[in-house]
Each structure stands twice: as C-alpha cells, then as structure tokens.
C-alpha cells in the first residue's frame, strides 16, 4: 500500500498530507490534522456527526475519500469560529437550546451552515430535508429549526 501526497484546503488553509489510497476525509481531519470537531458515530452514513462541508455541500466525511477531496474547499466546524467570534449559526445553536451532550452538534451545525449557504431563506420543508441525515439522541434535533431561524436573523443583523 503506497501512500499518496495530497493537498487539501481546510478552513481556508492549504494542508499537504500523505494518505493511504482509500482513507476517509474524516480520518484525515481527525487523526492527521487534529480537527476533532467532526465526530465519528457509525462510520457508514447512519448518523451525520461527521458532516463537513465540501465545496459548499454538506457531506458525510466518514464515507468521503480524502483523495476525492483534493483541491476542494473543506470547511469544518472549527472553520466557523474565527478570531474568537462565533459564527451566527453557532450562536444560534446555543441560543436555541440545541446543546446537550453535544456530540451531534458539530455535524448539525455544518448541515445548517451548508443549508444557509445555498438557500438563505429555507422553507420548513427545506429545513427538514437539510437535517434528514443528522441524528441526535439527546433531543432528536428538536431545536434545530429554531436555530436556523435565529441564524438567519443574526446573519441579517451582521450584514446591516
């Protein structure tokens, strides 16, 4: 098994790493780059705690080959927290009371972030679809739609 050198752009920063041919983006983020914000809950697309954003789209990093991500823009939950300031989506997730054990939260935040990136005014149905791939055992995501609505408000405030 020969390692391959690849270049990833993670949270706006270029990273050069050596990976095995079929290694998941999740493994690379967590184990090579120390970005443990993306979690592992099942490793096969069942829970969504590993969700990160690749080229503006939410994906399961546990089943996304790292080599496939080469040259693409990857955003993780760590990338939203800049200069000591919470991203509006992060603040909204706090204010909407979403946090309990917190294990599903980074993934859900990335799904929310991707949703608002592509669709700044989502309908209730859009919100349901956006979270269709994220489980949460503490609250089943009860407060997530509220968080989306708050995030939209905070983003507008930030613009004005």
């Amino acid at each position: 098994m020969s390692k391959k050198q690849i270049k990833l752009i993670v949270n706006g920063k270029e990273e050069i790493i050596e990976v095995n041919p079929y290694e998941s983006l999740l493994k690379v983020l967590r184990e090579y780059l120390g970005l443990t914000g993306a979690k592992r809950g099942c490793d096969y697309g069942g829970c969504g705690v590993c969700t990160v954003v690749v080229n503006g789209k939410a994906v399961y990093s546990c089943m996304y080959p790292a080599i496939k991500a080469e040259g693409k823009e990857i955003t993780t939950v760590e990338g939203l927290y800049k200069n000591g300031k919470l991203h509006p989506v992060q603040k909204a997730f706090i204010d909407a009371n979403t946090v309990q054990c917190g294990y599903s939260i980074p993934g859900a935040i990335m799904s929310a972030y991707a949703l608002l990136l592509n669709n700044p005014n989502p309908s209730d149905e859009d919100i349901k679809e956006a979270f269709s791939g994220n489980l949460c055992r503490c609250s089943a995501g009860y407060y997530w739609p509220e968080a989306i609505k708050l995030a939209i408000k905070y983003m507008k405030q930030r613009e004005s």
């Binding site: 697309g45 789209k57 939410a58 994906v59 399961y60 799904s111 979270f131 791939g133």
Partner: peptide, 9 residues
Amino acid sequence: VSSYQVRNV
C-alpha cells in the same frame, strides 16, 4: 433519499 448528505454525492 433518506439523507441530504448522500444526495449531495
């Protein structure tokens, strides 16, 4: 499809 993340890829 049961998961949005899957729909993206």
